[in-house]
Every structure is written in structure tokens, then in C-alpha cells.
Design a protein around this nucleic acid. Structure first.
Ligand SMILES: O=c1ccn([C@H]2C[C@H](O)[C@@H](COP(=O)(O)OP(=O)(O)OP(=O)(O)O)O2)c(=O)[nH]1
Ligand SMILES: [Mg+2]
Length: 995
DNA sequence: ACCCAGCTATC
DNA sequence: GATAGC
DNA sequence: GGGT
């Protein structure tokens, strides 16, 4: 069960020959056909196994392996003749080795392999109900043959492939023998295949393993039960080779021929047109129409039949996509969704064949993709993008492929198939670029391919860089700062630019203040594309090289397991599972999400389990007693006998929490302020801005004064450059960069302090000639100042003031009283910095919700509340409001003030929240923002997604982190549930100040 | 070289 | 989709 | 900007 343990036990790094052979044996069997989804996770009752079956299977894997290898040796002899016939002398040695695994083994060896496999299957497929089995079996039986066939038709575009297969079949390929090492990647077949002399037949090579095992197994085990076996039995005698290819071939022509005439009415959509159209249907419609992944593949195949994709770039790829929801378990396995529509469409558009889960066939690792069976082997398995090691859950992936999780390691799988992460689909460097908008086919050739068009190559990349606009904006900013030369001039050749440039010290390509240089790529691009072009032109050599390392997508997983140990990984997996189960199943008493959290840290409120209580007890001590040292910080004594503190090595801010008393300025406050300023100055480069901001936070969180470069560097979030700046600040009290700030910068800063005005608008104002707030007020039309900004302008000073806690309390009470009149059960909570205990707040953050257990929710009540507050003259101006006042989940923004003369105008934030989202929403709305971001980041790294609505598990993400699937919500009833799942030590709101 | 939270509201 | 904001 |  436990993949990690399995890995460890078997030594996942093990590459010895034996291992390979073993793998061979495992994979050479045809895939058992039971559909994994149906059988997955079913208890495997070993007792049911016949003795025969049990034997090898029950052995510890190592034991089994040994035996297996021992048998292998015996096999060798029989294989020998074959090699002789097929291969040259020079190749003999390697050939023999290679053939070992492949060669039709004598009965004994295969048997073992078979047995193991079968046992494994049993374990998996051990379906509780026999009917299932039969169905599975039937499916399975059919699948191997049919799948190919059915699949084949759609692939007229890959003419090369079929012929190859055919020839190879007829005339066995010695290919493998010649090649010392089979190319890990499915190179294009044409070149290799054509060159190949006839050699071993599929029977001998590709099939060898298969047949051998089959017969043995079939004969020996009289399992009537396993349909697969039956099928297998029949097939081996028939010479496996024949049925598969022939059928496939036959089928394909038929299919293609038949449908095309019929359907040829009007325009036949291309694959791209088809899938883009489907994509637009929306997730719901898609699911209703096709329901399963297999159905959709069929659908697109039909399209491809009639209108074959022109591109053949991926025509040698047979790709199986493992949907995250499949790995997720029973909920909605094999479900088609929008993400898959896109992905499948994109792949097919490039000529790839999509393999349905039932159709999976792994190649024997020791045979080449160019071997006879090349047309059947699945070349790629795309697995969900999940956190390294933690949530990969290979047992489930393997289950989906019909493989035994206990008998096969990840790496073994990798030997047979390219297991790649979802993001592989985007991996431009590695293979081809899959973008949402597919550019010209030429873009898909690698740079050294003569057909490659260098031009378009950069564009998709940009797109990837998240928010293009932002990137652009950033680029602009950077250009302005760093590079005088061209881009800046082009983009804004105005006086302001001149002004900026003249004063800015960054006009040169030196970085006088030690700035981080921009990425080389950017520099190169700015320098000119010629070089790149040249380089591309140079690399020529092989054109058939979509080189991807096998398992390229899984290095992270290995690294993680290596680093933390398989045991640890197992524990983590187990913990998550248990916790999910607990949260889902447990009928926990009605516990208000706020119970026990909002009041006092000392408050105990039960929680269901003792360990938790213990933890709380501990925390209580830690926090109640003046929080001596925050988590992870440690005291140590220096050489000179001085006591000092060491910060925690690293980590998420949410794990560290706040360790210093927010009410008093810490020892590093003055430095932090300077960094804040630097952060503001760098507004416009969000990451630089954030870098400074995080550094400031690190300083504030440091309980001792930082006095040296090295001390500064110890803090997580302070690097070389900022440490140097800190030194300067310590020495001079400020930083040169601040005193250099230009008039322009100052004005922009003033403008963007207006509520609703950001950097962009501020620059526009400036460009239009505005220099003061008065300018803007004077002629708002000229500057296109809109309502919210007008208000921001009007109350500019008010809104910059912090609000004393007392005042927030009073405003809050007004709202609460109003709510009580509407419905006594309508809850209003004050969130944000107020909940964190701040003595002054930037605004008033109110949360409105209602426990719907009596059948009523707060639909429409917010509107009422809104009106009442208006009547009471609390709310003076509406800034934004949700379009749907009845929405449970909506956000409102206003300016308000105490109904008394002289009171300042304040920002008011009201958030309507569905009650079941309260826990996540509490976390969100309590903040602070750094805390949220770090917690969400941690969640992401753990394979979750955290937002204001909830915690979602099994989220699939693309290469750039873009969310591909929603994941499924984990039932959390309190904030603590979420903290616990993410292994974030519980901390009350007061200690969530990370900035 | 790549990543850095995730969402709503408005235009 | 860009911008501003939470 | 920092971190990996
Ligand atoms: O970018 C942001 C900004 C805010 N929040 C959350 C956390 C924050 O605590 C809450 C309220 O936002 P607000 O801007 O009011 O911040 P605050 O924490 O309340 O501080 P302030 O005292 O400035 O209002 O919304 C985020 O998740 N991301
Ligand atoms: Mg606030």
C-alpha cells in the first residue's frame, strides 16, 4: 500500500540489471484489463488467493526478486539463439542482456513474473463483487486489442507509425539488439524504424515477456475468475503479436472509412475547432455531454478521423492522462472536465494519441519504442501535479494503470513509461510548447529543427509569466530603472521619462547600489535577438529529438523522499488521510467556528481529542507566559558568554507567527521603517516591493537589535543586498536611495495614496500634467477621475489616518445593533487588524453571516443592514457593492463615520459569508496579508489550495502554478481544522501579525 | 532560471 | 484583460 | 527583492 515504504524497501534508486529485468517481467504482461477505477482501493484479501498465486506474491519483494532473477539466469540460454540470428556479434553482449528481460522466457521465469503480477492484480482487483470482475475482465480482454484498433483510426495523420508497426511486426526488429540502450524517449519512429533491419519479431522482442508470462500463468493458475487471465491465455498461444496489430489495423481503416462518408456534410471541424468549441461549453455541459474521459477521447477521435490534424509532431506519442480526480478516489473517477478537454484537445491537435485508462500498455523497459509493438505502448503517463512526495500517491496512479502498487515502484514504472507531471505539457524546453492558444505548428519544433521558427518562441513564454500586463508593467518599470538604452525610450519618451532618467542613478548598466541584476535572459533579449538566433541556427544535428528524461517530472518526488525519508512521507500521507476522514465522517457537535478561538487563548473549549488538548495546554503555556521565545527561535551562548537568540532557519511566516509585541516598537523598528520606504519606492515591481516588505517584517519579528551584516543575514528574508542596505541604515540612519527619490516619485506616491488610485492611474495623472492633489480636484474631468477616486480625493487626509481601536469598536457596535434588529441570529464580527488586537486599524472589516441550521440564511439581510446603516448616517458613501445583494458571498465597500460632528471618514468593509465557509473566511479576513499568503503558499506546497472559501485538496496545477482543477473541499468546521491539516501551529489572531 | 496567494469588483 | 483592492 |  505504502508507496513510500515500498520505494524505500526496494531502494528506489536501484538501477541494477536485476531490477530492470524484474521490471521487465512486471510490465511485459499485458496490462491486466480490469478497470482500475472500479477495483481500486478494494480490500485485498490475501486469503482468497490460491496458493499458487500467493507464493511469490506474498514474498517480500526482495525475496521475490531474487527468485525471479535466479530464474532469469536459466532463461538466458533459450534466448541466446535468437540473438544470434538477429544481432551482430558486437551487439551480442548487450543484446543478450537486453533480451533477457524481453526474450520469451522459459516457463519458470515467466511464471514467477506472472504470478507476481497476478497476485498483485488480485490484491487490487479483488473486487468485492464478482460481477465487477467479469465486467472488468471483459473490458480488459477487449481492451488490449481493441483499444489499439479503435485508437488507430483517428490517427490517419500518423501514417508513419502504423507502417512501422506493421513492418516490425512482420519482420521482427533486431533494433533493440543493436542499440545499446533503448532510447528512453519515443523518438520518431520513421528514421529509426526505416533503418532497422528485420529482426526479432514482436514475439521475440516486445512480446517476449508477455507471452511467456501469459501462458505460464494461464496454464498454471486455473483462475477462472480473472478474465484477464483467460484472455491472456488465449492470446499467447495465438501469438500475441498477430491479434493486436492486425485487429488494430483492420479496425482503423474500417472506422475511418465508414464514418467519413457519412459525416461528410458541411465543414468538418478540425480537432482544434472541436475542442475549443467544447471548451466553451463550460464545465457543466461538458460533463453532462461526455461524462467520462474515455468518451471524450472517443469523441475527438471521431473528429480526427474525418479531419486529421495536420501536425504530426506528437504522432508517436501515446499519452495517458491520469486525472487528479482519479487519484482522488471514488468521488468522480474518470470524469471529464474542462481542463481535460483542453489538454486532450491540445495533444491530439499535435497528432498525439490519447490512451484511455483501460487501454494502458506499458512497454517492456528493455525494448525500444521502435520495436514492433511501438504502436501499442503507452509512451507517456501524465500524472497530476502534486506536491513532491507528499501527495503523489503513486499507489493510486498505479492503480489507475492497472498495476499493482505493491509490486511496482515508481521508478520501475518510469522505466516503462515516461511518467511526467502535468506541467510536462507545458514544458517547452523539454518537448513542445502546449499553450492555451496554440501557435503555428512551426513553434512546436525544437529550436534546432530546421522547421523551427524562432520568431514566435518568445511570445508564449511571456504569456506564461502570469498576468501579462503585470509583466509588461514590470518590464517597463525595470526598463526604466535598469536600462537606459532602448526600451524606455520607446515606451515612454516623455518629459517625465527624461526627468526620471536624469535623476535616477540607475541609468547605467552598473548597479551602484548593489541592485539585483535583472535576469540574464532579459538582458540578452534587450541586447538583441541575433545572438539567440545564431545559437539556434548552430544547433542542428538530430531533428528527431524531443528529448525528455524519463521520469523527468518526478525528480522532485524522489528528492523529497530522499530528503525526508520514506517513513516520514508515509506518515504525512497517513496523517492527511486520517484527518480528511475524520473531518468528513465525524459528526462533531455543533461547534461554532469562533468558539474557543476568539475569546482567550486560555479558553478551553473542548476539542475532541486528547492529544489536541495536550497541544493546547502546551500552547497555552507558551503564549500565555509572555511568549518568551517564538517557535523555532533558540537561545544560545556566544563564545564571550553572551546570551543570544537565533532565528528559526527558515519556513513559512504562518509557522513562525509573530513573536514580538506589536504594541511596542521592536528594537529594529527604525530600520524596518526605512525598508518600508524602500518597499513603497519599489511599488511597481511587485516582487521587489514584497522583498523589502518581507525583510522589514523579518526585522520587526526579531527580538534583538540587529547590528551587523551577518546578524541581518541570519534572518529569513534578508539577503546580501538588503543586509548591506541595513548596514548602511544602521550607520547613516537612512539609505541613499531614499534621499535620491525624485520629485516624480514623490508625486506618484502622493497620488497613489488616494483610495482607488494605483500606480498606473497615478502615472496617467502625472502624464496629463497633474502635480498636486489640487490639480486633480480642480478638473477631475480632465483626469477622468471617477467617483470612488473622487471620494478618495475628498477624504484624502481622513482615509490616511489610522482608526483608534475604540472608534472601531463603536462603529462595530452600531452595525451589530442594526443586525440584531434584522435578525437576532445574524452575526456580525469585526475582523482584520481589529481581531488581531491592533490598537489602531486602517479600516473597519466586518463579516456578516448566519447559521442556517434553522433553515434560514442571511440572504438579503446585508442589503437591509446596509440600508439601516445608511439611515443612521453611519455609511456616508458607497464605494462598491456586489451586483447580487442576495448573494451569500459578497463584498461591499463604503465610507462611514461616527454620527457625530468632527468624526473622520473611515473605510468600511463588509463581507457576506456563507456559514459553511466561515472557518476559511475567518482565516482570510483575520490576516494579516503576509500571514495569509504564507499559509496559502504552504497549502499549495502540500497539494492543497486555500482561499477564503475553504481548503481544497488534490488540486492540479500547471507549470506556472496555475490552477487546473478545483480540487475538492475538505470539510473543516473551525479554523483549527485548517491549521491542523496544514501543520501550522495554532495561533490566535493576535499572533498572526507577520508584517 | 524560476517562483513568489488567491480572490472580488469595476471599467 | 487591466487595475485596484481585500 | 529573497529563496531554491
Ligand atoms: O492583500 C490582502 C489584503 C488583505 N487580506 C486580508 C487579510 C487582512 O487582515 C484582511 C483585511 O484587510 P485590510 O486591508 O483591512 O488589512 P488589515 O489586516 O485589517 O489591516 P488594516 O489595519 O490596515 O486594516 O483581508 C488579504 O488576504 N490579502
Ligand atoms: Mg482592516
Amino acid at each position: 500500500m505504502n508507496t513510500a515504504a515500498n520505494l524505500r524497501a526496494r531502494g528506489y534508486n536501484d538501477e541494477d540489471e536485476g531490477n530492470r529485468a524484474f521490471v521487465d517481467s512486471l510490465f511485459s504482461l499485458e496490462r491486466r484489463m480490469r478497470h482500475p477505477l472500479e477495483t481500486m482501493g478494494e480490500g485485498s484479501s490475501d486469503e482468497e488467493l490460491s496458493e499458487d498465486e500467493q507464493g511469490p506474491y506474498l514474498l517480500p519483494m526482495d525475496e521475490a526478486r531474487k527468485r525471479h532473477f535466479a530464474n532469469k539466469k536459466q532463461e538466458q540460454q533459450p534466448t541466446a539463439p535468437q540473438k544470434a540470428t538477429t544481432s551482430q556479434q558486437g551487439a551480442a553482449a548487450t543484446a543478450s542482456q537486453r533480451t533477457q528481460g524481453i526474450a520469451p522466457a522459459p516457463a519458470p521465469a515467466p511464471m514467477e513474473g506472472v504470478q507476481e503480477l497476478r497476485g498483485a492484480q488480485k490484491g487490487i482487483s479483488k473486487a468485492p463483487n464478482p460481477t465487477k470482475k467479469t465486467t472488468n475482465g471483459s473490458v480488459a480482454r477487449v481492451a488490449p486489442v481493441k483499444k489499439v484498433s479503435s485508437r488507430a483510426p483517428p490517427l490517419p495523420p500518423s501514417p508513419s507509425a502504423p507502417p512501422v508497426a506493421a513492418t516490425s511486426r512482420l519482420e521482427p526488429l533486431p533494433r533493440t539488439l543493436h542499440v545499446p540502450k533503448p532510447p528512453p524517449f519515443p523518438r520518431t519512429l520513421h528514421s529509426t524504424s526505416a533503418a532497422l533491419p528485420a529482426g526479432n519479431t514482436r514475439t521475440s522482442v516486445g512480446r517476449s515477456s508477455r507471452p511467456s508470462k501469459r501462458p505460464a500463468s494461464s496454464i498454471e493458475d486455473s483462475d477462472s475468475e480473472d478474465v484477464e487471465i483467460i484472455e491472456q491465455v488465449s492470446s499467447p498461444p495465438k501469438k500475441i503479436p498477430a491479434p493486436l496489430p492486425s485487429t488494430s489495423k483492420k479496425a482503423s481503416p474500417k472506422k475511418s472509412a465508414a464514418p467519413s462518408p457519412k459525416k461528410k456534410r458541411g465543414k468538418v471541424p478540425t480537432v482544434k475547432e472541436a475542442w475549443t468549441k467544447d471548451d466553451k461549453m463550460g464545465a457543466k455541459a461538458i460533463q453532462e455531454k461526455w461524462q467520462t474521459l474515455a468518451n471524450y477521447i472517443d469523441h475527438l477521435n471521431e473528429v480526427a478521423d474525418e479531419n486529421p490534424p495536420k501536425s504530426k509532431i506528437l504522432s508517436k506519442f501515446r499519452i495517458l492522462i491520469v486525472h487528479p480526480d482519479i487519484t482522488n478516489g471514488e468521488s468522480s473517477p474518470n470524469r471529464i472536465d474542462a481542463y481535460l478537454v483542453r489538454r486532450i484537445g491540445q495533444l491530439m491537435e499535435l497528432g498525439a494519441r490519447l490512451v484511455k485508462p483501460q487501454e494502458f500498455v506499458a512497454r517492456s523497459p528493455s525494448s525500444s519504442f521502435t520495436d514492433g509493438d511501438a504502436n501499442e505502448w503507452t509512451t507517456h503517463v501524465i500524472v497530476p501535479e502534486i506536491h513532491p512526495g507528499l501527495r503523489i500517491r503513486f499507489e493510486k496512479v498505479l492503480g489507475c494503470l492497472g498495476l499493482d502498487p505493491q509490486g511496482i515502484t515508481v521508478e520501475q514504472l518510469g522505466d516503462a513509461v515516461h511518467v511526467v507531471r502535468e506541467k510536462w505539457a507545458w514544458d517547452y524546453e523539454a518537448a513542445v510548447k502546449f499553450k492555451t492558444d496554440l501557435p503555428d505548428e512551426a513553434d512546436y519544433y525544437l529550436p534546432d529543427d530546421p522547421r523551427h521558427k524562432p520568431t514566435a518562441s518568445t511570445s508564449p513564454r511571456k504569456k506564461n509569466k502570469g498576468k501579462t500586463a503585470k509583466g509588461k508593467g514590470k518590464g517597463k518599470a525595470k526598463a526604466g530603472e535598469y536600462d537606459t538604452s532602448d526600451s524606455s525610450g520607446a515606451e515612454d519618451g516623455e518629459d517625465k521619462e527624461a526627468e526620471r532618467a536624469s535623476i535616477s542613478p540607475f541609468g547605467t548598466q552598473d548597479y551602484p547600489l548593489g541592485e539585483k541584476p535583472p535576469p540574464r535572459q532579459l538582458l540578452e533579449r534587450l541586447a538583441g535577438e541575433d545572438k539567440a538566433k545564431k545559437q539556434r541556427a548552430d544547433g542542428s544535428a538530430s531533428s528527431d529529438h524531443l528529448a525528455v528524461e524519463p521520469m523527468a517530472g518526478l525528480h522532485k518526488e524522489f528528492a523529497y523522499i530522499k530528503k525526508h525519508g520514506a517513513d516520514q512521507v508515509d506518515r504525512e500521507l497517513k496523517f492527511a488521510d486520517q484527518e480528511h476522514d475524520r473531518l468528513n465522517s465525524e459528526a462533531r457537535g455543533e461547534l461554532h467556528p469562533l468558539d474557543g478561538e476568539d475569546t482567550t487563548i486560555l479558553d478551553e473549549r473542548s476539542d475532541d481529542n486528547e492529544t489536541e488538548e495536550e497541544e493546547e495546554e502546551e500552547e497555552r503555556k507558551r503564549y500565555a507566559s509572555k511568549r518568551v521565545l517564538p517557535d523555532g527561535w533558540r537561545e544560545f551562548v556566544t563564545n564571550k558568554g553572551k546570551k543570544k537568540f537565533r532565528p528559526p532557519p527558515k519556513g513559512y511566516a504562518c509557522d513562525r507567527g509573530s513573536s514580538t509585541d506589536p504594541s511596542k516598537p521592536g528594537p529594529n523598528e527604525s530600520i524596518a521603517r526605512v525598508l518600508d520606504q524602500l518597499s513603497i519606492i519599489n511599488k511597481g515591481d511587485e516582487w521587489r516591493e514584497r522583498g523589502y516588505s518581507k525583510a522589514a517584517a523579518a526585522l520587526r519579528n526579531c527580538p534583538y537589535p540587529v547590528t551587523t551584516h551577518s546578524e541581518a543575514r541570519e534572518l529569513y528574508g534578508i539577503g546580501e543586498r538588503i543586509a548591506s542596505k541595513i548596514v548602511e541604515v544602521i550607520q547613516t540612519g537612512t539609505h541613499r536611495r531614499l534621499s535620491m527619490s525624485t520629485n516624480y516619485e514623490k508625486i506618484i506616491s502622493v497620488f497613489s495614496n488616494i483610495y482607488g488610485v494605483g500606480r498606473s492611474l497615478a502615472e496617467i495623472f502625472y502624464d496629463k500634467g497633474a502635480r498636486t492633489l489640487h490639480d486633480l480636484k480642480a478638473k477631475p474631468e480632465l483626469y477622468n477621475v471617477r467617483e470612488p477616486q473622487m471620494l478618495g480625493l475628498k477624504y484624502y487626509d481622513d482615509l490616511l489616518q489610522r482608526i483608534p481601536r475604540d472608534e472601531v469598536t463603536r462603529l462595530f457596535e452600531y452595525a451589530r445593533a442594526a443586525a440584531a434588529k434584522i435578525d437576532p441570529k445574524l452575526e456580525v464580527h469585526c475582523m482584520g487588524s481589529y481581531r488581531r488586537g491592533a490598537m489602531s486599524c486602517g479600516d473597519i472589516d466586518l463579516l456578516v453571516t448566519r447559521d442556517p441550521s434553522d433553515g434560514k440564511d442571511h440572504t438579503g439581510m446585508i442589503a437591509q443592514l446596509w440600508d439601516m446603516l445608511k439611515e443612521e448616517k453611519i455609511i456616508a458613501h458607497e464605494l462598491t457593492s456586489s451586483d447580487d445583494w442576495n448573494a451569500l458571498d459578497a463584498k461591499y465597500n463604503a465610507l462611514c463615520s461616527l454620527p457625530q460632528p468632527g468624526s473622520l471618514m473611515r473605510r468600511l468593509d463588509i463581507l457576506g459569508v456563507p456559514f459553511d465557509e466561515l472557518p476559511a473566511c475567518l482565516i482570510y479576513f483575520t490576516g494579516d496579508d503576509h500571514f495569509n499568503r504564507s499559509m496559502r503558499l504552504k497549502a499549495r506546497h502540500l497539494g492543497y489550495r486555500l482561499n477564503q472559501r475553504g481548503l481544497y485538496k488534490d488540486v492540479t496545477r500547471g507549470r506556472d502554478g496555475t490552477k487546473l482543477t478545483e480540487g475538492s473541499k475538505v470539510l473543516c468546521k473551525t479554523e483549527k481544522d485548517i491549521f491542523k491539516l496544514l501543520s501550522v501551529p495554532w495561533r490566535p489572531p493576535e499572533q498572526r501579525r507577520c508584517s
